[in-house]
Structure formats: C-alpha cells, structure tokens
C-alpha cells in the first residue's frame, strides 16, 4: 500500500510538472487562431459588422437589428440580391410576357369582348324589302 502511494506521488509529480510546463500559450499561435476567427466571422456574419462597429440605440437601433436579423435569415446580401433579381424578372414577365405564354392579365380578368356584327351590314341588305 505504501509502495503504491509512493509510486502515485512519483507519477503525480511528473503530471504536475507537465501541467505547469503546458500552461503557456505561444503568442504567435494565438495570433493565428484569432486571425482564423476573424476570417471565419467575416464570412459568416458580414451583415452584423456595421452594427457591431457603430451600435445604434432606441427605436432606430431596434429597427436596424430587426432588418439585420431579417437579412441574416434570408441569407445575407447575396441571397437578397437573388431575391430582388427574381422578383424583377417576375414583374417583367407579367408586364410583357413572351409570345409563347398566355396573357396573364387576360387570364386574371376574364373580360368578354362583344362584337356587334349588325353594325357591319346595312340592314337593308339582309332584311327583305316590303312591298
């Protein structure tokens, strides 16, 4: 039992020495890690940076935060750009559809066109003359 205690103390002295030696952190490695973090952060949250650098307060700040949150949910500026482009294309197709597509306005309104055929003819030419 006593021998085991001595062995444990012997080993523990080595473990303790290792812990003391390992406590250091090279500054260059820390700098590399922080540079990695900044790079990843810039890619992940580009829309959050302006708010972090110039925080706004009150209703304006809350609105800005809401807009930023909305932007982030959408996927940031690239996703928003795609959304705007798709919307513009949809509007344009609606206003000026290609020939092979039906007129969307006509499909929605379903208006009728009346043609008065009788106005094209002289009544006298189709009605029998009396007498």
């Amino acid at each position: 039992m006593a021998e085991n205690d001595i062995k444990d103390a012997f080993l523990e002295a080595h473990f303790a020495a290792a812990r003391r030696v390992d406590a250091g952190m090279p500054l260059a490695l820390e700098a590399r890690m922080l540079a990695d973090a900044a790079r990843v952060q810039a890619q992940q949250v580009p829309v959050m940076r302006p708010a972090a650098e110039s925080p706004r307060r009150g209703i304006a700040g809350a609105a800005a935060g809401l807009v930023q949150h909305f932007m982030r949910v959408l996927g940031g500026w690239p996703a928003l750009g795609g959304l705007v482009a798709a919307s513009a294309a949809g509007v344009w197709i609606g206003v000026a559809p290609p020939d092979f597509l039906p007129d969307p306005v006509g499909l929605m309104v379903q208006y009728d066109t009346e043609v008065n055929m009788l106005d094209s003819y002289e009544l006298s030419s189709v009605l029998p003359e009396e007498g």
Binding site: M25, E30, A37, A38, Q44, M48, R49, A52
Partner: peptide
C-alpha cells in the same frame, strides 16, 4: 456567431491552451 469579436478572444484564451 453573432459577430462579437471579443468572444473569439475569450474562447481562445479559455480553450486553446
């Protein structure tokens, strides 16, 4: 994840060693 730069410093100091 929300863009806090100081968080990276704290996490590095806490976990990296």
């Amino acid at each position: 994840a929300n863009g806090d730069e100081q968080a990276a410093r704290h996490l590095t100091a806490r976990l990296a060693p």
